[in-house]
Design a protein around this nucleic acid. Structure first.
Lengths: 164, 164
DNA sequence: ATCATTTCCCAGTAATTTACTCGGGATATC
DNA sequence: GATATCCCGAGTAAATTACTGGGAAATGAT
C-alpha cells in the first residue's frame, strides 16, 4: 500500500462526487479547477477509477461522472488501489534470494504492517468520511452561504469563465 | 501523511535495528545489502532519522547505528514523518479563502482522513510490529474503526488476544 | 602511528514517477 | 448540426527517488 498525491487526488475527487450525488453528475473540469490540476491528468485518473468500476461517466452536455456504487460501498483503500497500480516489488517475495535468516523477517513485518494499513483504509468508506462530525460543521456553514467561490486567489486561474 | 518506498525503507531499516538490539549496533552496509539499495542512499535516510533523534550512530570499526529510544517509544508515524519532509501543499495553499469555497470541503475531508491515518500509525510502535506474527490472526479479524475516535488497533489487539 | 572501518557530509546525475500539453475522436444533448 | 462532455494516446516537462563519487572525522586494531 502506497499513499501519494495521486491517491489523494483520487480520494478528494471521489469525495467531491459523493458530496454532489444529488446533482446527478459532476464535470471533471469543475474538479480539475478545485484541485488545481490539469483536466487531462484528472481524466487519466478517472480512466482508472472507471476501470475499477468505482465511477461511471456520462457524455454530452450536462454530463460528467457519478459514483458507480453507494458511498458506503466504496472504501478509501479501493480508491487508492485503483489509481496506484502497485507493481509491488518488495524484494524477496517468497523467494530464496533473500537470506532465509533474520533479515528477511523485516520484509515480512512490513507486509504485515502494510496489510494492517490496508485493512484500516478498507474499513473507511466515502460515506464515513463525508459523515465525520468535524466536517459536518463546515458543511453546514457552507449551506448558509450561497456564493460559489474558488479556493485560491482568482487571479491565478481562469479569468475567462464567468459562468453563473 | 504520505507513504512511499522511502518511508518503507526507513521503517524496515528501523525494524532491522529493533531486531538486532542485542548486537549493539548494526552497520548500514548490512542493511543496504538486505534492502537492495545503495549505501549512500541509506546514509541519507539515516541522516534524517538521526536528526529526528530516532537513531544514534557510532563511528569506527564495529560501529553502526542503534535505536535512540526503546522500540515501544518509536512509532511508525514518527519514522515516516522523519524521512518524508512534508512539503504540505495538501490543502488550498494555506489560504483562508479556502473556507469560503464550497469545493474546499473535500480538502478538509482529506485532512481529517490524513489525520486518522496518522493517528493510526502513531499508535503502532516498532515493538508492536516486531511482536506481530504471534497475534496476526486476531489482527486480521479486527475491523478497522471509523468515526471520531482514534484507532489504536494494535494495542487493543494484543490485549484482545488475552481476553479471548 | 598507521591503518582499516565506519559514520558523516555534500555535490552532481541517472532513473523513475508525476503531472502536463496537445491533438484528436466518440457520444449525447440542445 | 453545434456543443459539451467523456474518452484515448503519444510526447514532454517537472518533481522525486535513488545512485555515484569523492571526501572528512571518529574509532578500534595492529
Amino acid at each position: 500500500m502506497r499513499l501519494t498525491t495521486k491517491g489523494r487526488y483520487a480520494v478528494t475527487a471521489m469525495l467531491d462526487l459523493a458530496l454532489h450525488q444529488d446533482r446527478g453528475s459532476v464535470a471533471l473540469a469543475d474538479i480539475a479547477e478545485s484541485q488545481h490540476i490539469s483536466l487531462s491528468y484528472l481524466e487519466q485518473l478517472f480512466a482508472k477509477l472507471r476501470k475499477a468500476e468505482l465511477v461511471r461517466g456520462i457524455r454530452g452536455p450536462g454530463g460528467g461522472y457519478h459514483l458507480a456504487k453507494a458511498p458506503e460501498d466504496i472504501s478509501i483503500a479501493a480508491i487508492i488501489s485503483a489509481v496506484d497500480e502497485r507493481v509491488d516489488i518488495t524484494s524477496c517475495r517468497g523467494n530464496e534470494n533473500c537470506d532465509k535468516g533474520e533479515r528477511c523477517l523485516t520484509h515480512q513485518l512490513w507486509e504485515d504492517l502494510s496489510e494492517q494499513l490496508h485493512n484500516f483504509l478498507a474499513g473507511i468508506s466515502l460515506r464515513d468520511v463525508v459523515g465525520w462530525p468535524k466536517v459536518r460543521q463546515v458543511a453546514e456553514r457552507q449551506d448558509a452561504r450561497t456564493g460559489r467561490d474558488v479556493c485560491v486567489p482568482v487571479n491565478e486561474i481562469q479569468q475567462a469563465g464567468n459562468q453563473a
